[in-house]
Amino acid sequence: MLTGKQKRFLRAEAHHLTPIFQVGKGGVNEQMLRQIEDALEARELIKVRILDNCEMDKHEVAEALAEGTNSELVQLIGLTVVLYKESTKNKRIQLPK
């Protein structure tokens, strides 16, 4: 579980990132979750864009992505989800205490 200070730090780090995944009409599926897990292992912090044609509620999508990838939901702003998961091999981000 992330503290408020850690979430604030991660939001600042994610500000300059561009979304690398999109959730569209099909919603969240297993293949997408596997790809996002791989991206989280490589990058630790990613953005996911929810498209306007997505039939699920944005809060449901954000929760499904976080639970399906065992990651932390850092932020849901507009239709953009920011996810964080500490990498086991490529640790890059040092969280504040």
Rank of each mutant, 00 (worst) to 15 (best):
G4E: 15
K7I: 07
R8W: 09
F9Y: 15
F9M: 10
L10H: 02
L10D: 01
R11D: 10
L17I: 06
L17H: 09
T18W: 03
I20R: 14
F21L: 09
F21W: 07
Q22H: 10
V23K: 08
V23T: 10
G24F: 05
G27F: 06
G27M: 05
G27H: 08
N29P: 02
E30T: 12
Q31P: 00
M32L: 15
M32Q: 15
M32K: 13
R34I: 03
R34Y: 06
E37V: 01
E37L: 08
A39Y: 02
A39N: 01
L40C: 07
R43H: 15
R43S: 14
R43D: 14
R43C: 05
E44W: 09
L45T: 06
L45C: 04
K47Y: 02
K47L: 01
V48K: 00
R49Q: 14
R49M: 09
R49I: 00
I50S: 05
I50V: 14
L51A: 13
D52A: 12
N53Y: 10
E55D: 11
E55R: 15
M56W: 15
M56P: 00
D57M: 08
K58D: 11
H59V: 02
H59Y: 02
H59R: 06
E60F: 10
E60T: 14
E60G: 02
E60R: 12
E60P: 00
V61K: 02
A62R: 05
E63D: 09
E63A: 11
E63I: 05
A64R: 13
A64S: 15
L65G: 02
E67D: 12
E67N: 09
T69S: 11
S71K: 00
Q75L: 15
Q75P: 00
Q75V: 01
L76C: 07
L76T: 05
I77A: 11
I77E: 15
G78S: 14
L79F: 10
T80L: 07
V81I: 12
V81A: 05
V81F: 05
K85P: 01
T88W: 09
T88K: 15
K89T: 13
K89H: 12
K91N: 07
R92F: 09
R92C: 04
I93W: 07
I93S: 07
Q94W: 01
Q94K: 13
L95H: 08
L95C: 06
L95M: 06
P96M: 11
P96N: 11
P96C: 11
K97N: 14
K97G: 13
K97I: 13
